[in-house]
Amino acid sequence: MDEYKSEVSTIVTEVYTGYQEVMDAGNEKEDVQLMIANKIMQFNPMNEEAMYVGCLLMSKSGMHQEARITYESFAQEYLKLYGEAYPISLKEILKRS
């Protein structure tokens, strides 16, 4: 079952990532971009690009607490998986906007 779950997760992440790239190019509404970033992270919580986009858009929309929670959740999972702290701070990510 894990094999199928992994395959479905990969396919869904690729599809949503494709949508995200099209949205970025077309200046689509930020709420749609945020929804896509959240969906990508649902299927692949270690997708850095989705975390970046999500944090940037949440912060831009005044959802600072949600952006912090999203970042911290990602950073904690990163620490568990790689045994080291995530090298980029939330502050650095938010400066990219």
Results as ranks from 00 to 15, higher is better:
65 Q>A: 09
74 F>W: 05
57 L>S: 02
74 F>Y: 15
60 K>E: 03
58 M>V: 00
43 F>T: 08
81 L>R: 15
79 L>S: 09
56 L>M: 13
75 A>D: 09
73 S>F: 04
38 N>F: 07
46 M>Y: 06
65 Q>I: 07
54 G>C: 11
62 G>R: 04
57 L>A: 02
54 G>E: 08
65 Q>S: 09
81 L>K: 14
61 S>W: 02
59 S>L: 02
81 L>W: 04
72 E>N: 13
63 M>W: 03
45 P>N: 14
45 P>Q: 12
40 I>V: 15
52 Y>I: 14
82 Y>F: 15
70 T>P: 01
66 E>T: 01
82 Y>G: 05
65 Q>K: 12
83 G>Y: 13
65 Q>F: 03
48 E>H: 05
68 R>N: 00
51 M>T: 11
47 N>M: 03
65 Q>M: 04
45 P>C: 06
74 F>N: 08
54 G>Q: 12
40 I>F: 11
55 C>H: 01
79 L>G: 01
77 E>D: 06
42 Q>D: 11
77 E>A: 08
66 E>S: 08
63 M>N: 09
72 E>F: 02
43 F>D: 08
53 V>Y: 00
42 Q>I: 07
63 M>K: 13
68 R>W: 00
83 G>S: 04
38 N>T: 09
47 N>W: 04
38 N>W: 05
82 Y>R: 15
65 Q>L: 03
65 Q>P: 00
50 A>V: 07
49 E>H: 13
70 T>W: 06
79 L>V: 00
44 N>L: 11
72 E>P: 01
76 Q>Y: 03
65 Q>N: 09
56 L>A: 08
51 M>L: 12
49 E>C: 01
45 P>W: 05
38 N>I: 06
52 Y>R: 14
64 H>E: 14
69 I>Y: 06
77 E>Y: 03
55 C>R: 06
61 S>H: 03
50 A>L: 09
52 Y>H: 12
61 S>M: 13
47 N>R: 12
53 V>T: 13
76 Q>M: 06
73 S>Y: 07
58 M>G: 02
71 Y>L: 04
54 G>I: 02
43 F>K: 03
77 E>I: 02
58 M>H: 04
54 G>H: 01
61 S>E: 06
77 E>F: 02
62 G>W: 06
61 S>R: 07
40 I>S: 07
81 L>C: 07
79 L>D: 09
42 Q>W: 06
51 M>I: 13
60 K>C: 00
83 G>D: 05
50 A>K: 08
71 Y>K: 04
48 E>L: 14
46 M>I: 07
44 N>W: 04
40 I>A: 08
40 I>G: 09
75 A>P: 09
51 M>Q: 10
48 E>D: 06
69 I>Q: 11
67 A>G: 05
68 R>I: 00
47 N>K: 13
80 K>M: 07
74 F>V: 03
46 M>C: 04
63 M>G: 00
